[in-house]
């Protein structure tokens, strides 16, 4: 639970796997003043890592130039309102993946090694929306942490 509203802030990187680490670290540092617990910062880091890794992997795929990723955060009473924009390829079909739970009740050889990312995003974040304009992907979501009672 936070005591006061944090001013809005922004973290920008050029897409790469190592830059994702830097973005997560800067984002969490910026949230320092609201004093999040381990579970809250874990939620933020997980959701953002999955979103950013997806952008690095699919919006700016290997072989194409890297590009900008901008993360904006507005702290409101009901949590952190985060928007992530990039100028890479659009989502397939212009839509968010469903993010269903992956079945693990299978033989060893059939165990999934991927497909957890969107499930984690949809499970931990609220109000997840995706929009594509001419050149940009924009994902918005709310993280129910740092809530002010």
């Amino acid at each position: 639970m936070a005591a006061e509203i944090l001013p809005p802030f922004e973290v920008s990187i050029m897409s790469s796997e190592m830059a994702v680490r830097e973005a997560l670290s800067r984002f969490l540092s910026a949230l320092g003043p609201i004093g999040l617990d381990v579970e809250e910062s874990g939620t933020i880091e997980l959701v953002l890592a999955e979103v950013l890794n997806n952008i690095v992997e699919h919006a700016y795929p290997e072989g194409s130039p890297s590009g900008p990723i901008d993360i904006r955060c507005v702290h409101k009473k009901d949590g952190l309102h985060v928007s992530i924009t990039d100028a890479g390829l659009a989502m397939p079909d212009g839509q968010l993946p469903l993010g269903n739970q992956v079945s693990v009740d299978v033989d060893l050889g059939d165990l999934p090694e991927g497909g957890f990312g969107w499930f984690l995003i949809q499970d931990l974040a609220k109000d997840v929306h995706y929009a594509r304009n001419a050149t940009q992907n924009r994902l918005t979501l709310r993280l129910p942490v740092g809530i002010i009672m």
């Binding site: 997980l46 890592a49 890794n53 060893l108 050889g109 999934p112 991927g114 497909g115 957890f116 984690l120």
Partner: peptide, 20 residues
């Protein structure tokens, strides 16, 4: 301190690689 879904997938892959 932190794993993401890629890290989770890699641990699953390690187990599969060891065999049943």
């Amino acid at each position: 301190e932190f794993i993401d879904s890629s890290g989770l997938g890699a641990i699953v892959a390690a187990m599969k690689n060891m065999g049943a």
